[in-house]
Design a protein around this nucleic acid. Sequence first.
DNA 1: CTTACCGCCTGTCGGC
DNA 2: TGCCGACAGGCGGTAA
Length: 270
Amino acid sequence: MPELPEVETSRRGIEPYVVDQAIAAVTIRERRLRWPVSLDIDERLPGATITSVDRRAKYLLINTTDGTAILHLGMSGSVFIVDRNTPAGVHDHVDIELESGHALRLRDPRRFGSLHWSDDVRNHWLLKHLGPEPLGDDFDGRYLWDRSRGRRVAVKQFIMNANIVVGVGNIYASESLFLAGINPKCAAGRIALPRYERLAEAIHEVLQRAIRAGGTTLRDYYGSGGESGWFQQELDVYGREDEPCHRCDRPLTAIVQGQRATYYCKRCQT
DNA sequence: CTTACCGCCTGTCGGC
DNA sequence: TGCCGACAGGCGGTAA
């Protein structure tokens, strides 16, 4: 569920509590995440001081004086701040305990998330192949057009491919295509430049709006359980099968692409 | 190179 | 009302 806006909201939420904090201890209650949590985490984090919290794609990068913890929230993960002695719930797998008496807690019921250690994040295997940030300078319609030439994959799957552009998850892919008026089934290689320019703008718009919405509800990452900022976006199509299109009033359509649900308007998206 | 599909998990939801 | 099976969903791995 956490898409890029939610991850960015989490980053901003925990940042003030963890930056410049020395790590007193690390408690790992469950190592079996998407990949087993490496012993490096236990060995290297304690004693280090957190220098910054960055985001790359949907990864949170907890930079320390000794290296970087790479955290992914998967489908159901969340991070939040608790007092160090707050009893852990069933799915609270990791605590990074800080000198301040707080702890950064990772909760992830489905365990699709992950936690890695790296001395050289830029070349880490999880991040190395990733495409540009959708909110960064090197992402625009021209870029999408360039990368899509000769590709027969559907445009929705194309923009969800992290090698092409990161952070466009299932929800925001449908929303962006609606905003741009593009049929999700359209072959990526058969879409002209002007339409990709509209699509790039739409992706930017949708993500930016969601981050802003997250920001307005970003009250308290301390003891919050990490729910704040989640799902504040007003959605035009996602999850609205048979409900009226916000533009033309006709019922919206749901299909499956690459084993994932897609929602769109047959009249407005061509 | 591209494309298609698998499977890791558990909370939620629909059907009976 | 209560139980149970189906399913969603990010994303790297693997196969074709």
